[in-house]
Amino acid sequence: MRLRAVDGADPVAVGAGLPAALDGAAPLALGFAPGPGDDVADGTAVVIATSGSTGVPKRVVLSAAALTASAEATARRIGSGQWMLALSAGYVAGLQVLVRAHLAGTAPVLLEGRFTPASFAAATRGMGAGPRYASLVPAQLATLLDAAEDRDVREALASYDALLLGGQALPPVLRERAAALGARVVRTYGSSETAGGCVYDGVALDGVRVASVDGELRIAGPTLADGYLGDPELTARTFVADAAGERWYRTGDAGDVADGRVAVTGRIDNVIVSGGTNVSLDRVERAVRAVAGLEGAVVAAIADERWGQGSAIVVALRTGLADSAPALLAAARERVAAEVGAEARPARIVPVEALPLLSSGKPDRRAIAALAAGR
């Protein structure tokens, strides 16, 4: 079947094309212009171009069955109702907002313009009666919490039956601040390859199975993508069959599964060697983000003449807080030493006006690494 290119930044266009895509009649290409050889199999609904925050570009093939299975499992877990779209429809989290609304028979409310506390509150006021839902990334939640002295923002946050938070790890302090304001936050874990979040607050959605194989999380179930368009080798490496013939997605994430709960500890490849010791930068970043004032910080690798490799904290500090950087670094080093080990302590802090972000709202880790290295 031929793909039809649609601008993922235009939620109206994506929404208009979604019914035919889910019916298998007109699959959509989001984020790229399909070429002459980019035909897809029957049943394909959407192909999403994604590079993540550090990886090479990939084009993920999602069937109507996978998108529908994910949306229906979400409705069984958190309920069904009206959705507000605060993310790009060209990314799986935003796309799934439109899919869930379509299956619920409701019209999604679109946030006008760029994401701000005022635009979030205005979009929320435009929602009808009944259950309300939205998907956000942690940086958006942090923006709303910082503006929560505004009554409209505070009331908007508390009005949702669930706010799905994904795309990156959610610092515990943000979740605690949200809960104190009555916001019902649900942490999600997943990717384009799993048709969006498939683990909610550590528990897999119905039908989804998660296992840890040699320390790597693998996922099976009806929400898996069919593979990568035009890249059979990457598809074969990433989607593997076990001895029983069941198909599993290799996430590349380190983690454990115990008593039915999934714990993600970081990317397998996000490790440096400092003084001969392997250090997970994901663990360092989690410890750093537990320090008040560093909730949105990103930890990046840097060269170190003495230890070979080290790490730096890159953080956007609000006006007037730049002078607090040395104290924040000291607090972060103490926290990291206690939780990860003395050898993992960040070497420096790099204050910036604003963290570079991808259009998905996730940190642009390549650009941040360049800032950490002083380039």
Rank of each mutant, 00 (worst) to 15 (best):
E233K: 14
A148T: 08
G182W: 05
A16I: 01
S311A: 04
G126F: 06
A142G: 03
G275S: 10
D231A: 14
R125A: 11
A331F: 03
G227T: 05
V213G: 07
S280Y: 01
V153A: 12
Y133V: 10
R366H: 05
P171F: 06
P171I: 09
S70L: 02
G230P: 07
D253M: 06
G166S: 10
L329C: 03
A26W: 12
E72A: 06
V97Q: 06
G252P: 09
A243K: 15
L165R: 09
E149F: 11
S359Y: 06
L136Q: 09
T116K: 00
V350M: 01
A93I: 07
V208H: 00
F120D: 07
F120M: 15
V46D: 00
A312F: 02
L224Y: 13
K362W: 08
T106C: 12
G35P: 07
E334K: 06
R375Q: 09
A337C: 01
G113D: 15
V314C: 05
R151Y: 03
A337V: 00
G374H: 10
V298G: 04
L87N: 15
R333E: 05
G43Y: 01
D269Q: 11
A162D: 15
D201R: 04
A162P: 14
V47S: 00
R184L: 12
L205T: 04
G35D: 02
P346T: 07
A204P: 13
F32M: 06
L205D: 08
A93Y: 09
G90W: 02
V299F: 00
